[in-house]
Write a protein that binds this DNA or RNA. Structure first.
Lengths: 350, 350
DNA sequence: TTGTATGCGTTATCAT
DNA sequence: ATGATAACGCATACAA
């Protein structure tokens, strides 16, 4: 293993001082350096195959030119998590235009504190947190420490934060309005923990739509299955239980999360339950997962890639110390009507 | 902005020297530190909310505990690049079990040299390169510099390298054998540049299969469209031109890359061309893209997630200076038969 | 068992 | 226009 080449080596070879090398290679204050020395330094660096040391620079400048993304679960890239992928596409798109690289905090940390230490320890200049719980201790700690942080697709319980999200409430209203328009009155809302802000926001929209349409909100059947329960058989059994024990059997289902809806309706199909014949189904996100489900699912679309881009740019603005208003940037949603919803049999529909 | 807290601050508070703090917090040589001092140091660190500085540690140890992945194209996460995603899933899976984070080299670099400098400048300890050209100058430069590098899904033109790939040649044979079994004799191979190792390896398998079956390899129509041409209309026109100008019109198409096959057959469907009625189609990778195409595509599957895992672990072994044999680790492939292939009309099939 | 001293490779301030 | 020199925060060899 040969010794690493540093700026002193370059300086020696070029016959100048090390600080001159630094000035030249950073392209700063070019006016102050004569053309001759510049060329000599650059040539020496080229000949020695010199690469500037990132850690040393970061140490002295306090800037890494990196932002980090915290992975929520081991399976973040499994199960074709197109929600995460679409956001990431936006983040990467935006990053490509900058001098920032992206570090994935993927290593195993014993607890959130060590992850917090890793983040604050200068692995990156800022962090993007995606779809976490509102009371996530990591989020709270980072915000408390005033570490540059942008929350994507959720809002933490904190007095001051930056977040990029979609209009979940409107999404809930669109979903419910669509089902009501189709004649449905008995509807179930299947969702994970309410400590996920999108779960409650969507629910609020759903209820609001019921009120607007004079439908008693008593008829809404809600069922909560923890977000991280990936046991498909268990989820299916639970869904059947909810449907069968409701005082009035629902004719339509709204799923707060996308992937569970996707494989549950396919599972229902296998079990002889017809979608939308037996149940109309609406879910959220409308990524490729819903688009190419069997049958394709009517879904509330949100501009995930735009959201990812916006989040990255917001973070960069914060790092550049531009004054950015705190709070939530909301992106619009729309309903993509597909084949999983149909008029309620016997219902009168305009 | 309050001053950053460092190990000196912790030392002062704990009434010990800075080096003792370092020893304690690194958990090394625990035996050498008395239980009392240890507790005092840990308590002081906790009270001061101390986080160890990554850059400083990296500077002195020469290790960053990061590996990097070079993004090939801006659109790496667009177009639902499930090839890349599936590999990444494996990499992340494996990384979660280690102390390594993953940095995405996503920033814009004016040329490969500056990217090379970034990599060698200590942004990470090793690098994973995915699906690049065999003569990729960045790959060659890294290998020449003996920088810890693992090539995924390609082999560079270099005397010494580590690579993880699948058995592309067998894949080509399986694809062709399947079509021959269905009675097809006039087949077109649609592929990107031959400087992509998988393109030529698959082609070799195709030709080998033709020889095994006594089919003249003269009948194979090959067409090359550069990999990065994403213009769908242009690609479609080119495909039609190839089909229509062949001396004998092909009855089956083998696509070397997955996504082009996916949207081309859907485009053909829109244009009134029936798959597999008019053409049988086989492609490679067999990710969700082929699985959920209209119609689902018969595809040569490879264990992308396993390959990603293996590549990461190989890189870690190299970093740990374990002795690992150079060359290519090949993973097996299989043919997933779906609805895009059918017996040639009028052909005699066993 | 603990402290002292040095160096990692930069940037940046201040002389010259 | 260029060169000394002092941090940056940590790990580690060596001294005590």
């Amino acid at each position: 293993m040969s010794k690493r080449i540093n700026s002193h080596d370059v300086a020696r070879k070029a016959g100048v001082s090390q600080s001159t090398v630094s000035l030249v290679l950073n392209g700063r204050m070019n006016a102050r350096i004569s053309q001759q020395t510049r060329e000599r330094v650059i040539e020496a660096a080229r000949q020695l195959n010199y690469s500037l040391n990132t850690s040393a620079r970061a140490l002295v400048t306090g800037k890494t030119q990196r932002i980090s993304i915290v992975l929520n679960e081991p399976g973040n890239f499994r199960n074709h998590n197109s929600f995460f992928m679409d956001i990431l596409a936006g983040v990467v798109d935006a990053a490509v235009e900058t001098r920032y690289n992206i570090v994935f905090l993927s290593a195993s940390y014993p607890d959130w504190r060590s992850l917090f230490d890793e983040i604050r320890g200068g692995s990156s200049d800022g962090v993007l947190l995606i779809g976490r719980y509102s009371d996530d201790p990591l989020t709270i700690a980072l915000l408390d420490a005033l570490f540059p942080t942008v929350c994507v697709s959720y809002s933490p319980n904190h007095c001051y934060f930056h977040s990029v999200d979609c209009d979940n409430e409107l999404g809930g209203r669109l979903a419910m309005q669509h089902l009501i328009d189709l004649g449905h009155r008995n509807i179930a809302y299947i969702h994970p923990e309410e400590s996920l802000s999108w779960v409650t926001e969507r629910k609020q929209g759903i209820i609001q739509s019921m009120q607007e349409n004079g439908v008693s909100e008593e008829t809404l059947v809600c069922s909560c299955t923890p977000y991280l329960i990936n046991d498909q058989e268990q989820s299916y059994q639970e869904l059947m239980r909810v449907i069968n024990t409701a005082s009035v059997k629902p004719t339509a289902l709204i799923f707060a999360d996308e992937w569970r809806a996707q494989w549950l309706i396919e599972k229902m199909g296998e079990e002889g339950i017809h979608i939308p014949g037996d149940f109309s189904v609406v879910n959220f996100n409308s990524t490729i997962l819903s688009e190419r489900a069997y049958p394709p699912i009517t879904s509330v679309w949100q501009p995930l890639t735009d959201i990812g881009q916006a989040a990255f740019r917001l973070l960069i603005d914060i790092l550049d110390e531009k004054t950015v208003p705190s709070g939530i940037i909301r992106y619009p949603v729309r309903l993509d009507v597909r084949e999983s919803t149909a008029p309620l049999e016997g219902a009168y529909v305009d």
